[in-house]
Nucleic acid binder design. Structure first.
Lengths: 231, 231
DNA sequence: TCGAACGGTAACAATTCCGTAACACCCCAC
DNA sequence: GTGGGGTGTTACGGAATTGTTACCGTTCGA
């Protein structure tokens, strides 16, 4: 599951490590650059949805990184992240084209909320879930397989989204019916089987030997994003 | 020459006065609302480019104002401005759709820089949008196709502009109705279909096989500026 | 080993949904 | 008033979806 790609430009290893762990736990796909020059390079190669930028960096400082990126027309949201809390630094950073400026020591929850606010405004706040060679894009209501769109019907998408929301858990047919078809609907439980079959034919490498959507005899199904069987 | 229209929602007269003087000196066109209800009204009538929103307000508090505005699909940047600096308040505010959150006592220079950063974003985000052989000129409220103006009705332009503001996202009919027709209007969702049909005939290479305005059965539509799938 | 139960899936039918043409209403300019 | 453009509603036809049924292979227990 990915909330988006972040580029963290930070030279202090301990801080970079701690922060990236927290952000990854939040579902972000985090890349780290240890100095300003690498930050510039990775901004071009990684194409992040958001940059977290320390100011005091070896080689090229954060202000210069920001100025350079904007000069190149790179428009990605930038959050400056620094111990320098002087008003003139904040103003300078924002005037150079940064979108937000947070002073250390900052509260991680706030940092995440600010990052998400920027992604939301930019419209890149998508949560993408991956399994195998597929990714489910809830915002676009679409599934891509190796980058190509998979033609799913509404029911199939709803079922897959439900599976993805409950990975690794045994799901009884009744439970699935209630969640995906709705409580008020009278449908044969066999309708689920049919829908699962078409889903498998569209997202499984081998529909006859499913690895993601596994059958639990007498119960229902279990979705395994990793394709492996847990102990 | 105005830097933009600001709506300051603040109940304490002294602070409102002082702040608005400073902002006016910076070239902003400042309107003041003394409570939350008036803030909501003025947001609709004044149509500000940015809202500075105090949290602790009589009648309707700032969080509710923010929630209500976003619920109405009003997308104006909001800066929350408050003495409540608790992390959970900051996170709540940002999650409700605020764009920034500054705690009192704040430094005026920083506030102005943050406001300008948000306005700058808005300015650069919405110049001219391109898709296929068309370009949408928001300022001129006009669409060119291969350089020639396309004759769109007001409704069609509003719909296309809305699509362009949310590229690649699934848009439910209800959402579209709220955003383009307005929350208070009673119209059949089928009216959207009809408007989409005419739009397609005007901007799609082949209206019967649309590539930009895609149908999502049972849901609504999705606008893909690239006409294909992003990598 | 046999039979019953269960799930996979193909075929079919009914339903739902969308595109679009036709029509009606409203507003405004003249 | 009158005409014309814009906009919402309705209806029809085609197409996609989806539930059901049936048949078959597999699994499991006696």
């Amino acid at each position: 599951m990915s909330e988006g790609r972040l580029l963290l430009v930070e030279d202090e290893p301990a801080l970079a490590r701690g922060l990236s762990d927290t952000l990854r736990a939040q579902g972000f796909d985090v890349h780290i650059a240890a100095d300003g020059q690498r930050g510039l390079d990775m901004a071009a190669t990684v194409k992040p949805d958001l940059i977290l930028l320390d100011i005091m960096l070896p080689k090229v400082n954060g202000f210069d990184v920001c100025r350079t990126l904007r000069g190149q027309g790179i428009d990605v949201p930038i959050v400056m992240l620094t111990a320098k809390g002087q008003e003139e630094d904040v103003i300078l950073g924002l005037n150079l084209g940064a979108d937000d400026y947070i002073t250390k020591p900052f509260r991680t929850g706030e940092l995440i909320a600010r990052a998400k606010a920027l992604l939301r405004r930019r419209g890149t706040d998508r949560a993408v879930q991956r399994f195998g060679d597929c990714e489910i894009d809830m915002a676009a209501r679409r599934v891509l397989r190796n980058g190509a769109p998979v033609d799913l019907t509404a029911r199939e998408f709803a079922l897959l989204a439900y599976f993805a929301s409950r990975p690794g858990r045994a799901l009884a047919r009744d439970t699935i019916l209630n969640a995906v078809w709705g409580a008020a609907v009278f449908v044969t439980p066999r309708s689920i089987d049919r829908c699962v079959a078409t889903l498998r034919s569209k997202v499984e490498p081998d529909a006859h030997n499913p690895i993601y959507i596994q059958t639990i005899r007498e119960i229902g199904y279990r979705f395994e994003p990793t394709g492996s069987i847990p102990s």
